[in-house]
């Protein structure tokens, strides 16, 4: 089963555009990443720049509108993710527990859709889906 662990760092919504993690923070996180890798469960991971340097595109009234960050109305934003392959939801949770995260950080765990879960007619529409991800 593939799960995405979504890191929602506390205060990241208002972090400066050039915000960089501390050396100690990175060192601890690297150790954690290594553990995931040595357990054979890590498939991918990325870290994201703060929303202050991001853009939101909304579609109100059928019209795409782009607005530069930061976004005052948004409280929780992504800071990065891990994609893991584990045996169960509980195991994903257990891995998340071990993350050297800060006091106000949150990790949200979400299962990745497999095309085989969809009903037949949806599967048909999604036939070439996996090619897109390649």
């Amino acid at each position: 089963m593939r799960f995405m662990m979504l890191m929602i760092p506390g205060g990241y919504a208002s972090a400066a555009p050039d915000n960089m993690p501390s050396a100690e923070g990175v060192a601890a996180m690297m150790k954690y990443n290594e553990e995931l890798k040595k357990a054979g469960v890590l498939l991918a991971l990325e870290g994201l720049h703060p929303p202050a340097s991001g853009v939101r595109v909304s579609f109100k009234g059928g019209k795409p509108t782009a607005v530069d960050g930061p976004f005052a109305e948004v409280k929780e934003v992504l800071g990065g993710y891990w994609m893991i392959d584990v045996r169960s939801r509980e195991e994903a949770v257990e891995w998340a527990r071990r993350c050297p995260a800060g006091d106000s950080d949150v990790i949200e765990i979400r299962r990745v859709h497999e095309v085989s879960e969809f009903p037949q007619e949806v599967q048909k529409m999604a036939e070439d889906f996996s090619k897109l991800t390649g």
């Binding site: 357990a39 045996r87 169960s88 509980e90 195991e91 949770v93 257990e94 891995w95």
Partner: peptide, 8 residues
């Protein structure tokens, strides 16, 4: 949960 800890 225990099983997950054990597997790891």
């Amino acid at each position: 949960e225990i099983d997950a800890v054990w597997r790891i």
